[in-house]
Amino acid sequence: MGLVEEIAGMRAEEGDPGRLLGEFRRAVLLAPVADGALMSGQQGGIRWIYAFTDEESLARFALRRGADATAELEYLAILGARLVDAVVPEMDGPTGVAVNVADEDGSMLFPPVGGIVPDAAAVDLAGQEDAR
């Protein structure tokens, strides 16, 4: 199964969180870029990097944001693992990844918690010493 199918399984309460995370980490995602930075939004004190599973999902996002249907949107193709392992820790403040946010029934949030992002960037592990 791919990431889209794993998201559908989770939303139907039939999915497996481990498989979902594995597919997310292996997926090549499209992250839109504006003004030289990855596009993101703020919600509940968390910055959410926008990422999409395909160009159609990215186009729906652009149209909902008021973009011209003929305009090209610049994006970076990046592995989900690279987003959470390399990009998230470099962001200021708690940061997660929002996948396919324009698809009401196909979106999924990957929050900044242990097991998804590196421990140093996980809000649920903040202030805990490394037990190793």
Rank of each mutant, 00 (worst) to 15 (best):
M1E: 10
M1S: 14
G2R: 11
L3S: 00
L3D: 02
V4R: 10
I7P: 06
A8F: 08
G9S: 09
G9H: 11
M10L: 07
M10H: 07
E14G: 10
G15K: 09
D16G: 08
G18H: 13
G18I: 13
L21E: 04
L21D: 01
G22A: 12
G22T: 10
E23H: 13
E23L: 08
R25P: 02
R25K: 09
R26E: 09
V28A: 14
L29D: 01
L30C: 01
L30H: 07
P32V: 03
D35C: 05
D35I: 06
L38W: 04
M39S: 05
S40I: 01
G41N: 06
Q42L: 15
Q43V: 15
I46D: 00
I46Q: 06
I46W: 07
I49G: 06
Y50P: 07
F52C: 03
F52G: 02
T53A: 10
D54V: 02
E55R: 15
E55C: 12
E55A: 15
S57C: 13
R60V: 11
F61C: 01
R64L: 15
R65G: 15
G66N: 14
G66K: 14
A69F: 13
E72Q: 14
E72N: 11
E72I: 13
L73A: 08
E74S: 07
E74Y: 08
L76V: 14
L76Y: 05
A77I: 00
A77S: 10
A77L: 00
A81V: 08
A81Q: 09
R82V: 12
D85K: 02
D85A: 03
E90P: 04
T95C: 10
T95R: 03
A98S: 13
A98W: 15
A98G: 07
V99L: 05
N100V: 08
E104S: 08
S107D: 12
L109D: 09
F110K: 03
P111S: 04
P111I: 02
V113K: 11
V117R: 09
P118S: 00
D119V: 05
A120C: 08
A121L: 08
A122Q: 03
V123E: 06
V123K: 05
L125A: 08
A126D: 10
G127D: 11
Q128H: 13
E129P: 11
D130G: 12
A131H: 12
